[in-house]
């Protein structure tokens, strides 16, 4: 089942244009600037975009193709179906993160005009936040999957997650009071994690971890309750 679900995502027609755009824009950024940071805007936004419009679609595809009633009679069980789909979203997101890391590294190696030590360049400047990026993106994909399952609408999920995720790039709350509403909006809605390297210097790590655990546990619990009430698990 997992293989089929992954196939559905990898065969999406938007994969190639988005990845090609990322490669081109990263090349342009590196060509024009030696200070370019991959995850700060380009990588994190592209990843958010892919999660919102490709990975999340898996959870609404049955509705769109009007086969949800048939799919719910699966002999493997509805719990298994939900679990496998969440797993698929996580695996697909991991694959995209690895691909983006590869694009980032290749770009850095090709445009290393200042002859900086490659090992230092990769470990200190570029790859230091990759674990954070991976964690943030997998959490975001599970979050959007839960939202999509709750609302049964790709549009609603895209609007809710898209506005909250995207606004942090424009309304920056770095200088705002700690633990205020704006602070949570800036740091508590995944884009902060996906931007990677910023998070490494975060002094309030414990609060952030507690917040994300709370957010994810609540989201998953609500999804399960709603699915249960709809007799979908």
């Amino acid at each position: 089942m997992l293989r089929w679900e992954i196939k559905k995502l990898t065969r999406n027609v938007w994969n190639i244009p988005i990845i090609t755009s990322v490669i081109c824009l990263w090349g342009i950024m590196l060509y024009f600037s030696t200070q370019a940071r991959f995850w700060y805007i380009l990588g994190s936004l592209a990843l958010g975009f892919i999660i919102l419009f490709i990975s999340t679609r898996l959870f609404i595809l049955d509705e769109e193709e009007k086969v949800s009633e048939v799919i719910l009679t699966t002999k493997y069980g509805r719990w298994n179906l939900l679990f496998q789909r969440v797993m698929t979203a996580g695996i697909y997101t991991t694959g995209i993160v690895i691909l983006f890391l590869f694009i980032q590294v290749i770009g850095v190696l090709l445009f290393n005009r200042n002859e900086i030590d490659v090992h230092e360049l990769l470990t200190v400047h570029f790859l230091k936040g990759c674990l954070l990026v991976w964690g943030g993106s997998v959490l975001f994909s599970v979050f959007t999957a839960c939202l999509c399952t709750i609302f049964k609408s790709h549009g609603v999920t895209a609007i809710l997650s898209g506005i909250l995720f995207g606004m942090t790039y424009i309304l920056r709350g770095n200088l705002l009071q700690q633990y205020s509403f704006e602070w949570f909006l800036e740091k508590g809605l995944f884009s902060y994690l996906i931007r990677g390297e910023n998070g490494l210097f975060e002094p309030q790590w414990v609060v952030i971890i507690v917040w994300y655990v709370f957010l994810m546990v609540s989201m998953i619990t609500i999804t399960i309750i709603i699915q249960f009430r709809r007799h979908e698990i």
Binding site: S153, G155, V156, I159, L160, I163, L164, M167, L171, F181, E182
Partner: peptide, 18 residues
């Protein structure tokens, strides 16, 4: 469309913050 009202709610909150 319920999408409009969801976006309206989020935008209002962010607008007032702005």
């Amino acid at each position: 469309q319920r999408e409009i009202y969801i976006a309206l709610f989020l935008c209002t909150v962010l607008f007032v913050m702005g």
